[in-house]
Design a protein around this nucleic acid. Structure first.
Lengths: 101, 101
DNA sequence: TAAATATATTCCCAATTAGGAATATGTCAA
DNA sequence: TTGACATATTCCTAATTGGGAATATATTTA
């Protein structure tokens, strides 16, 4: 919900999520300790907001693989992998893989 | 461990992680069902490898916030946010926040 | 001050999860 | 074939987690 960049009071989050206020406060507390959100006092409200810079490490990590989907090479390779996967497990619907070969 | 792009047999993963073989197999099973890794048979081994394209959705999501740490504006704003945060909770070491103001 | 409002915290329990032991399944080599 | 090896699966249990009820702690307003 905070990913839209807006700031929200705890109550505003409570009404939109299907959770009670204590649960929301605990989620926000965890996110705050993790640095994912920030809080500022505004009157008797605590305004929570996404802290986008906390996502940089995630970004840096996945960026390494960027070329896999931007370059043709990666797409070809991926298709080959998927085909190999399908060959191995014939679409995993939970059923035991039909022994083959 | 698979994030280095190499392929590994289950056993190789078992020896490096501090987990038993069943636990590793279960982790790999979950990752495979999630599309994060792929498997190919190689002899009696199952070679697991990261499927980088599965990370695209993560990448697309965090990419939205890229400008927050690449532009000066974002950095300034972030510093202000951090200061506000520190003002509010004096470094969260688990202790009750000293009532202030 | 007291009451009302907003949020955090504590305590408790049900649900989920993670991992191991035992076992089943699959594969290779002789 | 049989035995050895590699992996998956089942079953069980301890640990963790998530969320609510009750309560504590601000904060504003009258």
């Amino acid at each position: 919900m905070l990913s839209d960049g807006e700031e929200y009071a705890v109550n505003e989050i409570v009404v939109r999520m299907k959770m009670g206020q204590p649960a929301v406060s605990k989620h926000l507390g965890a996110l705050r300790r993790a640095g994912v959100v920030t809080v500022v006092k505004r009157g008797q409200h605590r305004m929570y907001r996404l802290n986008p810079t906390s996502l940089k490490s995630v970004y840096d990590w996945v960026k390494v693989y960027e070329h896999y989907w931007t370059h043709q090479i990666g797409q070809i390779k991926e298709r080959a992998e998927r085909k190999a996967l399908e060959r191995l497990i014939r679409l995993d619907d939970g059923s035991k893989p039909t022994k083959e070969e």
